[in-house]
Amino acid sequence: MTSPSTVTDTAAGGGMPPLLSLRGVNKSFGAVHVLQEVDFDAFPGQVTALVGDNGAGKSTLIKGIAGIYGFDSGSYSFDGHDVTVTSPKQANALGIEVVYQDLALCDNLDIVHNLFLGREITKHGRLDEATMERRAKETLAGLSVRTVKSIRQQVASLSGGQRQTVAIARSVLWNSKVVILDEPTAALGVAQTEQVLKLVRRLADNGLAVVLISHNLNDVFEVADSISVLYLGRMAAQVRAGEVNRNQVVELITGGRSGDLGLGPADALATSPGQRPDPTGPLGANVEAS
């Protein structure tokens, strides 16, 4: 996209090539055009915050990345190669892991079982509990997790922050390269939020590309390196966190533009909040604005 307001990718990535890159992605559910020509990049070693109001298309975007459903059109490239991702297994094989908001943990199983759920290590057809337990312990230690008493306790007995930690640990257990976190701090208290954000930062410092979805701009500015703002199904801006302030981001979220940043004036007008853009109209408008 060559929209004047969109900061170029290398600028957002600080000079590095993106690990995960979407170009001109579209997704419709029936007549509702949820994502329109969305460009999105995630860089290794960085936290990319994905923000936007309810209904902006954040969940649709990450579900498409995770392969829960395919995008209708547009290119999806990973580590420089064009890939097709239409199932969660394919995304996992690439090294893309998603930590969903509702965590997706089994309360009746312990931490080790949850970490390896669906990908148990077996030896001669038997579960290799010892290896799994050792690797679980190493992973938690590698993330500097200190708050878990025993990794053999049931997940039901953990606090919200600990559960989030287990869910995040599960996502990094498999040499993953991209970790997508859907509102990891939504239900947490102050101390636990801090703990999880530190963990998020450590993931990026370990070289992972982290995508953080959040409504909380405090969190975003605390850990994010770059911020991508979705507005009514379109990528309003992808900017370095250090180059914008909170007000600009709020304007981008609520109106799709802020000064020079964001969608062109025609787009911002064409897509007044509360009204879904017509599938055909705004695309044309977008081209004009370019």
Partner: peptide, 12 residues
């Protein structure tokens, strides 16, 4: 039995 949705997302 514990959480069918979690199991599904884990690829089971």
């Amino acid at each position: 039995g514990g959480n069918a949705e979690a199991a599904r997302r884990a690829g089971i």
